[in-house]
Design a binder for these strands. Sequence first.
DNA 1: TATTGTTATACTCTATAACTATA
DNA 2: TATAGTTATAGAGTATAACAATA
Lengths: 151, 151
Amino acid sequence: MSTIHDDQGKGMNDPLLELSGYLLRRASAAALNELNDRLAALGLRHTDVSLLLLIRANPGITQSQAGRLLDIQRANMVPVVARLEKRGLIKRTPVDGRSRAIRLTAAGRMLAKKSFAVVQALDQDLIGRVPAKLRQAVRPILLALWQGAAE
Amino acid sequence: MSTIHDDQGKGMNDPLLELSGYLLRRASAAALNELNDRLAALGLRHTDVSLLLLIRANPGITQSQAGRLLDIQRANMVPVVARLEKRGLIKRTPVDGRSRAIRLTAAGRMLAKKSFAVVQALDQDLIGRVPAKLRQAVRPILLALWQGAAE
DNA sequence: TATTGTTATACTCTATAACTATA
DNA sequence: TATAGTTATAGAGTATAACAATA
């Protein structure tokens, strides 16, 4: 991770720092890298964890429903689900002829718990980096930036 | 773009919405998609624009310096720079035996100007989605989330 | 007709290792 | 020894089109 504070960045002029959208992207990328680093010990990536947590909160959810909530297209859900199933973290049972209900296995519940602790710890760290007076504005701002997007 | 507000999301429980890190990622992805959509008319992607704007603000910057500021590795800068050069938007001149100074061509300056207008317009739109009382907190929060990251 | 899960495919972005030529 | 630019390669994530089976 390089930032404007690097020695190598001295004397340079970075007009991108004036752009909120750029700061949003850099902050997101940094947090995502940090999350993936911390999750590596569990052999998971952020995508796996988001799906595990969603299944845990919604036992029996289908692949399509999960994909819509996570904004992952049906076609792209296939390898993610297959990987978690192969690892024995989730199981699928037919709900009708075409849909399958996804649930966590015991191993999946264990790993969901562990990964949730990691995710929550990072979230606390992220919030802790924000000056105390601004902390209560973090979630409303991020929600507004996201949910206000054209869809 | 799907969100929790979709009809298909009804009745679902999304625990990820409690996580600032997740909101950060979704907000960033949404903004990035929107930016790339708007830049498509210019035949550019967000990466191209960030480099064009950085070169415009720092004529003669080298590929490595730009990569450090943008957090793009040397190896990954090669195709980006090559594409912009092939399109006649930038030119490179040797500064010593190994480094080359990058500058915008006339066409590059024109496109940098146009793309900067697009980027600034999106930035205004983004800020406009945030409740007025919270707007002044947007940049400090994003900077804190980013620059507070371990490096 | 629309939806679910799937395959195939391609493109972008990112990561690592290794090479050359220069400093 | 370290750095700049490059090549090659692999892994994520994402996008579209198409298909079979089912609703």
